[in-house]
């Protein structure tokens, strides 16, 4: 069993995937000799050369568009958007093109590709290097949206993502790149898209999270268990689309209380959809209102350290919500 950081998990799995599948190319800004600004593609260029590790022009729209064209013509591209904040020039290509190709051609022209993007705050990145953008894409049928938060999950989901015949958005929380270390099994495994994972067992309340919020929620839960005897079950979504409602509902049948936490803005965040689904389908099981803790509804994460902390879903804040829910 190897211990890896999230970043190592990304990098090693990209290397492995490129070894295994000749038709995979990695493309993006600075992904070549520089190895990416986060070093997620380090070593790939030396190993596979410029035909398979493509330094692109600084133009997100066409990073995605060219990847789409390559996907139409035999490749399974893995495109990197350097920061999720800069994905918007490519929004039209992702939403109107990649997501719609299969449907609009009645299955004739699928677009198998992965778009990787580091997202999230906690790195003093200010408004434009901290954004969580997943809810723009979870809204769109035709896109898979993944947000794994541990090395093991990154490896298993990336291995699976490169085999599905449709576009996948693969969001990597950049604060967790070096912060999270974890075990990665030596034996080959894959994790299916659409399977959540229970990261902590508990009978009192259910907490659904992903990304930085997941790790902060686990911290909060451990503290509440120790100090107040509240036992929270923590579900790591890992995959936002498909959404593993089975796992969420099963836990909810046990606890009757649920809190959804994410760093993305609360209003219209993915938690809103989860809350709505619970209201529609699980009303009878609820012992408390569905609670949400999302990012404050300001345009993006502010820069100055105390302001940034105010924005982020850190353990104390989550613990407060968890307590409120447990006591309801």
């Amino acid at each position: 069993m190897a211990i890896k950081t999230n970043l190592q998990a990304v990098r090693d799995t990209l290397m492995e995937i490129m070894e295994r599948y000749d038709n995979v190319v990695v493309m993006g800004e600075d992904v070549g000799p520089r190895g990416g600004v986060f070093q997620a593609t380090r070593g790939l260029y030396d190993r596979f050369g410029p035909d398979r590790v493509i330094d692109t022009p600084l133009a997100e729209l066409s990073i995605v568009a060219v990847a789409i064209g390559m996907a139409l013509n035999g490749y399974h591209p893995i495109a990197e958007i350097q920061f999720a904040d800069f994905i918007f020039p490519a929004f039209n290509q992702i939403v109107n093109e990649a997501a719609r190709y299969r449907y609009r051609s009645n299955g004739a022209w699928p677009v198998p590709l992965i778009i990787r993007a580091p997202y999230g705050g906690g790195v003093s990145g200010g408004l434009y290097h901290s954004q969580s953008v997943e809810a723009f894409f979870t809204h769109v049928p035709g896109l898979y949206v993944l947000a794994p938060s541990t090395p093991k999950d990154i490896v298993g989901l990336l291995r699976a993502a490169v085999q599905v015949p449709d576009p996948v958005l693969f969001f990597e929380h950049k604060r967790l790149y070096g912060l999270v270390k974890g075990e990665v099994p030596d034996d080959y495994y894959e994790i299916r898209l659409g399977e959540a994972d229970i990261k902590r067992r508990g009978d009192d309340i259910t907490v659904v999270a992903y990304g930085l919020a997941l790790h902060e929620a686990i911290k909060a839960a451990d503290k509440l268990s120790e100090q107040e005897g509240i036992e929270a079950e923590i579900i790591d979504l890992r995959s936002l689309v498909p959404l593993d409602l089975d796992t969420i509902y099963e836990s909810l049948r046990k606890t009757g209380k649920i809190l959804i936490v994410h760093e993305d803005n609360q209003t219209g965040g993915w938690g809103a959809e989860i809350a709505a689904r619970i209201a529609e389908e699980m009303f009878d099981w609820l012992d408390a209102p569905v609670m949400r803790l999302g990012g404050p509804d300001v345009p993006a994460v502010p820069y100055a350290p105390p302001l940034e902390r105010w924005f982020l879903p850190l353990a104390d804040k989550i613990a407060g919500k968890m307590r409120e829910l447990a006591e309801y």
């Binding site: 898979y144 085999q163 599905v164």
Partner: peptide, 20 residues
């Protein structure tokens, strides 16, 4: 029909139809 292609590596939740 045909929003996504079939794949054994994707699990759609039994509940509901939208995204799962």
């Amino acid at each position: 029909e045909g929003v996504f292609g079939d794949s054994p590596l994707v699990k759609w939740s039994k509940k509901g139809t939208i995204n799962g």
